[in-house]
């Protein structure tokens, strides 16, 4: 059944691949490879890298806990104005991240609508903390998860859920044992997108959580500041971030494909 691949598809596909990979190759060519090992093991880089991985992972957990139910609500419920809600969920995608950061400050900042009460009643102040980084990343990354899970839910056949219901399963049981397994590829894809977006997050993070080494300086922030004085160091930092994220994603991908 194998036939020749159609040129109309292959040609743009190759151009697309080159478009995505050539800038990356540019980084690799320009990189000062000799100083890479020294940079890699400096405390600042290790600190920023660890903070990036921890915060992106925590943000992804927040997105999963809140985002999967939200996607279910958007795909399965009969809420009035669902179309509008669906559009509003994508707002953080469209918003410049810096504006998202300012919006978070206006709500959760020390003088924010919600933040002032957190501060007065519980003594909790989120800006300039690691928790603030997680929140900012989750805010920007969650739409990626919600959209892909919702798409998977809408493409899934609802008759399996109906069958489960006629057999006496509650909606919660149906969700856990029927719905969730059937949309797993969508959840996995959404999780990857969400984690990757959180890992590269810059604007909302620096605006809401600020920049302080060991507390809120993630890799993208370190890269940006290195660019001010030492472009070579910035390239090295970017490559470190790229290698680590590609390694993590490739490693997880193999595991998912096997199961």
């Amino acid at each position: 059944m194998r036939s020749r691949l159609p040129v109309v598809l292959v040609l743009p596909a190759v151009v697309g691949l080159a478009f995505l990979l050539v800038p990356l190759a540019g980084l690799l060519v320009e990189a000062p490879w000799t100083s890479l090992p020294a940079q890699l093991f400096s405390t600042e880089v290790v600190q920023a890298l660890r903070l990036s991985l921890v915060c992106a992972s925590l943000a992804t957990v927040v997105c999963l806990v809140l985002g999967v139910p939200l996607a279910w609500l958007l795909a399965r419920s009969e809420l009035p104005g669902r179309g509008l809600l669906r559009a509003l969920v994508t707002v953080p995608l469209v918003l410049p991240p810096v504006v998202g950061g300012v919006a978070l400050l206006l709500v959760l900042g020390r003088r924010g609508v919600v933040g002032q009460h957190l501060d007065q009643w519980f003594g909790i102040s989120l800006p300039f903390t690691t928790a603030g980084v997680v929140l900012a990343e989750a805010f920007v990354a969650m739409p990626f998860l919600v959209i892909s899970v919702e798409g998977a839910l809408r493409a899934a056949d609802p008759r399996y859920e109906e069958a489960a219901a006629t057999l006496g399963a509650s909606r919660w049981l149906t969700f856990r044992r029927v719905t969730l397994p059937s949309v797993m590829p969508g959840v996995v894809a959404g999780t990857v997108l969400c984690w990757a977006r959180a890992l590269g997050e810059f604007g909302a993070t620096i605006t809401f959580a600020g920049n302080f080494p060991g507390r809120t300086t993630t890799m993208p922030l370190a890269v940006y500041l290195a660019l001010e004085t030492d472009p070579d160091a910035a390239i090295v930092l970017s490559i470190v971030l790229l290698l680590v994220s590609v390694a993590v994603l490739a490693g997880l991908r193999d595991r998912w494909i096997r199961t």
Binding site: F128, F212, T216, Y224, E228
Partner: peptide
């Protein structure tokens, strides 16, 4: 100084 943030 004891800064809470070092802005870009």
């Amino acid at each position: 100084a004891a800064p809470d943030t070092l802005e870009q």
